[in-house]
Design a binder for these strands. Structure first.
Length: 583
RNA sequence: GCGCCCGUAGCUCAGCAGGAUAGAGCGCCGGUUUCCUAAACCGGAGGCCAGAGGUUCGAGUCCUCUCGGGCGUACCA
């Protein structure tokens, strides 16, 4: 169990024994000032109010019913009734020793692991991946890694847009190219830039009425399951997916073709969704469309109109609401999911509120199946407008990543010009990609974020390069000493304040990861990393490691270095960011 | 109109169930290198937490209203 949770339980019990009302929590928080200890319990004040007694008296009674001597120094009552908690060095040393032997660094495995679906990335296959897909892909991947590490069963679902009207247009254009070009070399060349391909076919669609009709015909035959059309569709889909795979590989994202479960997978089930909604008495026809009206959305539209969830268009076509409903049912019945995370931008908030609501009412999602929208804000340029190219076009993800690597390469070349070019390229890829990902993850996902190359590639502040450098610095000690990690074994003895503070930080990894998993907030892990690095730097300045006075201190400090390095590596790894042993 | 999100230092952002003197980075001012990676470290200045009420022993955090911004609001995803 993590430290914070341990304190919470022990002190809550003491609170109950002291006569506090049922459910009074210890309300453990990390103290924000060193003089207040490492943690503080804030629960006495609230409980005392309920009991109408003096909070300090209650705090005293809590102490009378509490023996924390195994974990903490004697607790102090402070201010109006805070309990200040200082963790004992001996306890920390023991906890760190255990963590050192544990591949999970002390992060506990849940008693009942859950099956968690993480729905993320989900690009539209009609176009190339662009910056709009970046946040979903990065945040979703980090969440998947974190949940997997904790010990949950993670099912990645890449709900790609591989169906819909725009495919008719693309297939028609593809067919046209193929007709003039039996070898298919022309078509292949055009398909190497999907963005361009889409633009050209769209242009044709808008200007050539005959072509537009053919395109509409293709949609019809596609939906009718015409063999030739399906063949063209498969070809296009495959090429588009390979573009995605390239991006995922460069980004170091774990998604593979096995995780692709696109809109088209649900085609056959959509008619059942409609039927079942009808049987459940939820379906209403309105303005020719099949809709579900939820009470919460009555009178919420323009002119106080009721807002429907449209599940079938008046022309009989289905929408993403239909597919999402089918997806929820699939995830519950086929994947046996306990929890599903939908990592999409915040503009889809209302859509998910509606879809989840309808899914519950229709029984597609049992009450205990947790459905969570994990929303995030937009990426903005330095002008605070949506992030676009100078000419106002969409920025392709592949171009963004290339620029990240190039900028990192220039930086590496400037700082360490003596390294050979191949090595500098290697470092640049890890630093550049890491910078892009970390910049995104370190931000509270709810807010829009301003994209800035200079900021994300800075060595100062809460950035990937800073964390990667911090790691490399730790590892330099081992290299300098000519000893292997495995040789750094022995007793951990914590005496200096800097050592104790560093140890506390290391011991806080489990509770941090727990918070991240519950709240889907990777930025908490980034803040933690930055604090850990800060604690390490203070330690590094204050406590000589290799030149420590006595061998016992040297060994102990080497172990602190070792654990710091492993913790940074692990935490960055959970964010999907690589480290460098040397930079 | 209604709904959701947001408004914290000059700039970009943290602030985890309401807790003690609101924290970082950039920028600005100043210091540290015969010493384990200076791509580093340390210190300083800088805030009526948009505004006004309210709840509370205690509010950046909760409630109401106002102002300012973003997004959404019937057949795109």
């Amino acid at each position: 169990m993590n430290l914070k949770a341990q304190l919470e339980i022990r002190i809550s019990d003491a609170l109950a024994a002291a006569g506090a009302p049922d459910g009074s929590g210890a309300l453990i928080a990390r103290s924000n000032k060193p003089q207040f200890g490492h943690y503080q319990a804030n629960g006495c004040m609230a409980a005392a109010k309920a009991l109408k007694i003096n909070p300090r008296d209650l705090a005293q009674k809590v102490l009378d019913n509490l023996d924390l001597s195994d974990i903490a120094e004697p607790l102090e009552i402070a201010g109006p009734g805070f309990l200040n908690i200082r963790i004992k060095p001996e306890w920390l040393a023991r906890r760190l020793t255990e963590a050192e032997r544990d591949p999970k660094l002390g992060v506990p495995t849940p008693e009942k692991p859950q099956t968690v679906v993480v729905d993320y990335s989900a690009p539209n296959l009609a176009k190339e991946m662009h910056v709009g897909h970046l946040r979903s892909t990065i945040i979703g991947d980090a969440m998947a890694r974190v949940l997997d590490f904790i010990g949950h069963k993670v099912v990645r679902q890449n709900h790609v847009g591989d169906w819909g009207t725009q495919f008719g247009m693309l297939i028609a254009y593809l067919n046209d190219l193929a007709a003039d070009d039996p070898q298919g070399t022309q078509a292949d060349a055009e398909l190497s830039d999907l963005e361009d391909f889409y633009r050209k076919s769209k242009q044709r669609f808008d200007s050539d009425e005959e072509f537009a009709n053919t395109a509409r015909q293709q949609v019809v035959s596609l939906q009718a399951g015409d063999a030739a059309t399906l063949e063209a569709w498969r070809k296009f889909r495959k090429i588009s997916l390979s573009h995605c795979s390239d991006v995922y590989r460069r980004l170091g994202v774990l998604l593979t073709d096995d995780d692709v479960y696109g809109e088209s997978e649900y085609n056959d089930d959509l008619v059942n969704v409609i039927d079942d909604l009808r049987s459940a008495g939820l379906l209403e026809e309105s303005q020719g469309a099949q809709c579900v009206f939820l009470d919460e959305f009555r009178g919420k539209g323009e002119d106080d109109a009721d807002v429907p969830l449209i599940v079938q268009k008046s022309d009989g076509g289905y929408l993403y609401a239909t597919t999402d409903l089918a997806g929820i049912r699939y995830r519950q019945t086929q994947l046996n999911a306990d929890r599903a995370l939908y990592v999409t931008d915040s503009r889809q908030g209302m859509h998910f509120t509606q879809v989840f609501g309808v899914a519950r009412k229709a029984g597609f999602a049992k009450p205990e199946f947790m459905l969570e929208h994990v929303p995030f804000g937009m990426m903005l340029g330095s002008d605070r407008r949506p992030f676009k190219t100078r000419t106002g076009g969409t920025i392709k993800l592949t171009d963004l990543l290339t620029e990240a690597e190039q900028r990192a390469f220039d930086l590496v070349s400037e700082k360490t010009p003596d390294l050979d070019e191949a090595r500098r390229k290697e470092i640049a890829a890890i630093v550049g990609i890491g910078a892009v990902k970390y910049a995104d993850l370190s931000q509270n996902r709810a807010s829009d974020y301003v994209f800035s190359w200079d900021k994300m590639l800075s060595m100062d502040g809460n950035t990937a390069p800073y964390m990667q450098y911090a790691y490399a610095r730790v590892k330099a000690i081992f290299r300098k000493a000519g000893i292997d990690e495995s040789q750094a074994v022995g007793q951990i003895v914590l005496t200096e304040a800097a050592e104790i503070n560093l140890a506390v930080k290391i011991a806080q990894l489990p509770e941090t990861i727990h918070s991240v998993s519950v709240e889907c907030m990777p930025n908490l892990l980034c803040s933690y990393l930055y604090e850990l690095a800060g604690a390490y730097m203070t330690f590094y300045e204050a406590c000589p490691v290799l030149k420590a006075d006595d061998p016992a201190a040297r060994t102990s400090r080497l172990m602190l270095c070792l654990l710091t390095a492993r913790t940074i590596k692990k935490a960055l790894g959970l964010l999907g960011i690589d480290i460098l042993e040397q930079m």
